[in-house]
Amino acid sequence: NVSDCAACLLKSQCTGAQRHYVSRHAHEEAFERMEQRMLAHPQMMANRRSIVEHPFGNLKQWLFGNGRFLLRQLEGAKAEMALAV
């Protein structure tokens, strides 16, 4: 809200633009819940590494030979894995 800017302590450091936008990912609430679970149970990530990551790495090694995706980002990796299997 524009009226909030007048009382903001950071106004002197802010941009001179007429409008200010705060963006939030569509699934930000889910990300926050996931982060809270991870903070509450740090062992979960260690379990994931030991259970999931190793077989997935083996699949990549068997399918691609070098164990690396050629395409980047999640969409590229999904497409490359879909073509391989």
Rank of each mutant, 00 (worst) to 15 (best):
residue 72 R to S: 13
residue 72 R to P: 00
residue 61 Q to V: 04
residue 38 M to L: 15
residue 28 E to M: 12
residue 70 L to V: 14
residue 53 E to P: 00
residue 47 N to C: 09
residue 50 S to D: 12
residue 64 F to T: 03
residue 73 Q to K: 14
residue 17 A to T: 05
residue 41 H to A: 06
residue 52 V to S: 07
residue 73 Q to C: 10
residue 52 V to F: 11
residue 84 A to N: 02
residue 31 F to H: 02
residue 34 M to A: 12
residue 78 K to T: 03
residue 9 L to H: 10
residue 52 V to C: 14
residue 35 E to P: 02
residue 36 Q to F: 05
residue 79 A to Q: 06
residue 75 E to S: 10
residue 82 A to H: 11
residue 67 G to A: 04
residue 71 L to E: 13
residue 82 A to Q: 14
residue 30 A to Y: 11
residue 37 R to M: 14
residue 74 L to M: 12
residue 52 V to Q: 04
residue 8 C to R: 08
residue 18 Q to N: 06
residue 6 A to G: 08
residue 56 F to E: 08
residue 27 H to V: 15
residue 72 R to C: 05
residue 54 H to S: 06
residue 64 F to W: 05
residue 73 Q to F: 13
residue 9 L to A: 13
residue 29 E to S: 07
residue 45 M to D: 04
residue 38 M to I: 15
residue 54 H to W: 08
residue 30 A to C: 02
residue 38 M to N: 08
residue 74 L to T: 15
residue 12 S to C: 07
residue 30 A to E: 11
residue 20 H to I: 04
residue 50 S to A: 13
residue 18 Q to F: 03
residue 3 S to Q: 08
residue 35 E to W: 06
residue 3 S to I: 14
residue 41 H to M: 10
residue 58 N to K: 14
residue 47 N to V: 07
residue 65 G to R: 12
residue 28 E to T: 07
residue 53 E to H: 06
residue 34 M to R: 12
residue 51 I to M: 07
residue 21 Y to D: 03
residue 49 R to T: 11
residue 80 E to I: 07
residue 14 C to P: 00
residue 82 A to P: 01
residue 4 D to T: 10
residue 59 L to F: 13
residue 26 A to Y: 04
residue 13 Q to F: 01
residue 85 V to E: 10
residue 15 T to I: 02
residue 19 R to T: 05
residue 7 A to K: 15
residue 46 A to I: 12
residue 63 L to I: 06
residue 64 F to V: 07
